[in-house]
């Protein structure tokens, strides 16, 4: 199947400081892709750059194709037909993404008018349908309320409704549940999974929460310091991470079950993008690093099991014989 979005060698620099070092990504129609990594690793910048939403001081190189149509550094008119229409994006803080002085119903109708040309009663009916669809109780009665009269979780639902207004083929959700409480976060994750099943749109889920990503996504990319370091299916990566950084992320999370021992942190901190290490960006924090890692940047290469990996000394592959024995016991 042809990919919906193909990103090739995307590079971004702010004032000459490179923050993305050549990202390659594909999103298939209807697929749910997770992008994980710690703050500053470039997961949001990748999509802001792809949609031309970065400030003008950012220099962007590479190619972002939406079914053959080039978006990278494309003219504004072409981007505006895509943004909100074919690709929609929702952000971490819904309250600041809504206009505080306009009633939510009008904001929804505006999105419907811009992207689908619906006006008057038709627009209003569709807005109410969307509010129902994202689970706003009593949509009719709350159509004329202002954003501050909704809670954080409901504002995020409204944002999702606005994103759905253009019937997008791809929804980019940038940390959509980070600012929400645990029980509300569960509701929003459930909503995203349900909407994807109902509408068939693809979802890119950007998050630092590995648990949330595992629940929504089919495939995951792990990013570190502006590069993809490991990419594969949720089962592959979560079942048997091979990049030491992916493994480190898992080990650092306290568990909800099992013994309660000291955690295994990743030593040190993320490198300063102004002074990147000469070789693998993770080498200074990596227990597996050898001489090679300090001088050469490992390339992202396909592995036998289908995943992609950028590491010279990865954790060993899973032994099929042992898997077979495990399955027997």
């Amino acid at each position: 199947m042809a990919n919906l979005v193909e990103i090739r060698d995307l590079r971004v620099a702010f004032d000459g400081v490179a923050v993305l070092h050549g990202i390659g990504l594909e999103v298939a129609p209807g697929e749910a892709l997770g992008l994980v990594g710690e703050s500053g690793c470039g997961k949001s910048v990748t999509w802001l750059a792809a949609l031309g939403l970065l400030p003008s001081k950012a220099s962007i190189d590479g190619s972002v194709r939406l079914q053959g149509q080039e978006l990278c550094n494309a003219p504004r008119s072409r981007l505006e037909r895509v943004r909100g229409g074919r690709i929609a994006m929702i952000f971490q803080d819904p309250a600041s993404a809504l206009n505080p002085v306009i009633r939510v119903g009008r904001q929804l109708c505006e999105a419907l008018r811009l992207h689908r040309g619906l006006t008057g009663a038709a627009g209003r009916a569709e807005a109410l349908r969307l509010m129902d669809m994202v689970g706003i109780p009593d949509a009719r009665g709350r159509f004329g309320l202002y954003p501050h009269e909704f809670s954080g979780g409901q504002c995020q639902r409204l944002m999702i409704a606005m994103a759905l207004a253009g019937e997008p083929e791809l929804l980019i959700a940038d940390e959509p549940t980070t600012a929400l409480d645990a029980t509300i976060q569960a509701q929003i994750l459930d909503l995203l999974a349900r909407l994807r099943a109902e509408t068939g749109m693809a979802v890119v889920f950007i998050s630092h929460d590995l648990g949330a990503v595992a629940q929504v996504c089919d495939r995951v990319c792990v990013m570190y310091a502006g590069r993809i370091v490991e990419q594969g299916s949720v089962a592959q990566l979560f079942g048997h991470p091979r990049h030491p950084y992916t493994r480190g992320l898992f080990d650092a999370i306290p568990r909800l079950y099992g013994p309660r021992g000291a955690l295994v942190p990743i030593s040190g901190t993320v490198p300063d993008p102004r002074h990147p290490p000469p070789g693998c960006a993770f080498a200074p924090r990596c227990a597996h690093a050898h001489g090679f890692c300090a001088t050469q940047v490992p390339r992202l290469l396909p592995q036998r099991d289908g995943r992609h990996l950028a590491c010279a000394f990865p954790l060993p592959e899973r032994d099929p014989q042992r898997d077979y024995e495990d399955a027997l016991t």
């Binding site: 979780g153 029980t183 459930d190 929460d209 929504v216 909800l256």
Partner: peptide, 24 residues
């Protein structure tokens, strides 16, 4: 129960979790 069930744990699927209706 709902609070503990709502914590996403890597490797635990979405199914079977308690999802509360409404908000505090």
């Amino acid at each position: 129960r709902a609070l503990i069930s709502s914590v996403p744990d890597p490797g635990q699927p979405l199914k079977g979790r308690i999802i509360l209706q409404g908000e505090p």
